[in-house]
Design a protein around this nucleic acid. Structure first.
Lengths: 352, 352
DNA sequence: CGACGCTGTTCAAGTATTTGAGCACATCCG
DNA sequence: CGGATGTGCTCAAATACTTGAACAGCGTCG
């Protein structure tokens, strides 16, 4: 019934019996110009009325909303951790991330209907005047023009897990795929495996990381031992994981080790192996990638490359903040590569 | 180098050679007052300059920012799906969720340092003038006063998974714990189990759902068969999952079935069972709750209650939108209970 | 010829707040 | 006693629009 919407500064000023601008200055901390008693009165009234500053107005006036748009697929614990990293860093600078979904999250998180959805999401962020943008480049290529426009308007952009095919127009951050794939290769070769298969993800245009991961792995195996890796991948919609896993395990000769480009694919290998009565790691070694939340508790626990999603998130956010603080134009776009660590668990052993 | 920040309406008007207010009206869709040729010119210039409306201004003027604050723990796939549901519904109404983290997401997602963190997060949302608030009530009790203030200001609040201990002051949405727990109880009893243990989560003040879930389960078992359930729980920080699981499986007599209050606890049971050489489901039946992303691919696949997180998210968002659309004061707070479905997989069987 | 419709214009006020400039008054110094 | 200094506060413009009201120029119709 009180029907009162948010109290205005005007109300506070009136209640404390000072002018609007006096109230504004006092509440902004410019107190030395005013008497202690006046300050206290204003503060007390603001408190009593429950006044809070209106950041929208600040946004209009300063051109800074203290928000950063984030466009990533909140798909598994990897992305959740990336988000966590972003949140922590932004929060400590009193920024807030505004996250939008890409893809038809209704039914299939990893699949995007068309470019327009992503573009409209970017639009919605820009309408809110975000100060910066962190994104996973589902269709980065399609957005190039958009990026260029943003950068011209001094809205810093950081892209996660994307390699710019031509000119690099924005900052970029990714897992060091080459080193990581090599670590996996070294591990499997050291165990003595020679029949090695790689289970890649969907390798659509925007899944550049999957391509790089698989290719780096193939290259490492070839370079280290001269062996050829037989590679499989998911279909375009990522719906046939179990079928591919079955296919992988039905090869003649059967591979003794499978490197899955993420832990998700490894799950399908586990499932197919159980179906076929193959024991891990006795009959089959499995290596994943990401160290997702469930990987340590699989039976057997999954050997996997532990990425540093939180660190990736933190660095991404920090890059945005740095760009916003410092001079924007004088530094060229950079790429940060974050390391990953091989966690050896029970899913790998020498071939029998 | 162009150094241009976002173009203003003024720029568009100038470029199209019309007045500011004409440009405003045309771009807002009030076109019938203007000639087709003029409209086209304005639209074209707006497009060319990349003009986009400034929702901050709209927010100041109308008091509606078209944003909804969301405060939930993006902890596992359950919450990710809740978020997805929220996003879908809000996006279709051209709203945007602004998500803040609760808890020290740096190290321990499910643990909050103190009330103040949550309150400061709410503050940051309110400073941005969110139109509504969806939250998971880590410290809902501590926030009661806050809620009351929000509701007085006509900021609708929806609480997920929280039971108001006294007066219900906000809308609330939760999984139907009673029915769900009863379904689990019926399943285990139908299989013939009599030594049944419940593995609860941390049951801190704000984990009301865990308390309700465990208590409902105990009650159902008692009511259906007159049996007593031996219940265990995690410590206050949720750090001793494996120890508790070991303890559970070391009881004399050993339970033949364990109901885990979430799939996370079930993972610990799997791990402890593997350690002790117990086979699931031959020696031990395990039931989880939530049907998280990994549950179907465990070996054996986990029997679990499938909640409807997306539906919960959707309903929560819809409740906010309804409150915003309709008359706010005339309807009393309601509680929505969303059903869950028992998914029987390989982790349960009759006791041997 | 005057009224009317069409297509625009200008004016002014409103949104919530910030901020540079400046004013009134008191005190203090020379 | 005049001028400098400082305190406490106010005024007005600015941010980027929106919106209602009034009005102006032009062609047309009765």
């Amino acid at each position: 019934m009180s029907g009162s919407s948010a109290p205005r500064l005007k109300d506070v000023a009136k209640a404390a019996n000072v002018s609007l601008s006096a109230a504004s200055r006092i509440l902004r901390g410019e107190r030395d110009r005013f008497g202690a008693e006046t300050c206290e009165r204003v503060l007390k009234e603001a408190q009593r009325l429950g006044w809070r500053r209106n950041l929208l107005v600040n946004g209009i006036q300063t051109g800074r909303t203290k928000t950063v748009g984030v466009m990533i697929p909140p798909y598994d614990s990897f992305w959740v951790d990336v988000l966590a990293g972003i949140h922590v860093v932004l929060a400590s600078a009193d920024y807030l991330p505004i996250t939008v979904w890409v893809g038809d999250c209704q039914e299939m998180p990893h699949f995007e209907k068309d470019d327009k959805q992503g573009l409209s999401q970017i639009s919605r962020l820009l309408d809110r005047r975000v100060d910066g943008l962190i994104l996973w480049p589902s269709f980065a290529v399609a957005y190039y023009d958009h990026f260029r426009e943003l950068i011209e308007r001094r809205v810093p952009v950081v892209v996660i897990d994307h390699e710019f095919s031509e000119e690099q127009i924005a900052d970029s951050i990714e897992t060091d795929e080459q080193r990581s794939a090599r670590a996996v290769a070294e591990h499997l070769l050291a165990l003595g495996h020679e029949q090695i298969t790689c289970f890649s993800s969907r390798e659509t245009a925007w899944q550049a990381w999957a391509v790089r991961r698989r290719a780096s792995f193939e290259a490492a195996i070839a370079e280290l031992k001269g062996l050829e890796v037989n590679s499989f991948r998911l279909n375009q919609w990522g719906t046939n994981g179990l079928e591919v896993a079955r296919e992988i395990l039905s090869q003649e000769p059967r591979p003794t080790a499978v490197f899955s480009v993420t832990d998700h694919e490894a799950l399908f290998i586990y499932e197919a192996a159980a179906e076929l009565g193959l024991r891990i790691p006795d009959d089959l070694s499995v290596v994943g990638f990401a160290d997702l939340d469930f990987s340590a508790t699989l039976q057997p626990p999954l050997t996997t490359m532990r990425q540093q999603p939180k660190e990736i998130g933190r660095r991404a956010a920090q890059m945005i903040l740095d760009r916003l603080d410092g001079d924007f134009s004088d530094s060229t776009p950079t790429t940060v590569r974050v390391g990953a660590e091989l966690i050896v668990r029970g899913s790998t052993s020498p071939p029998s």
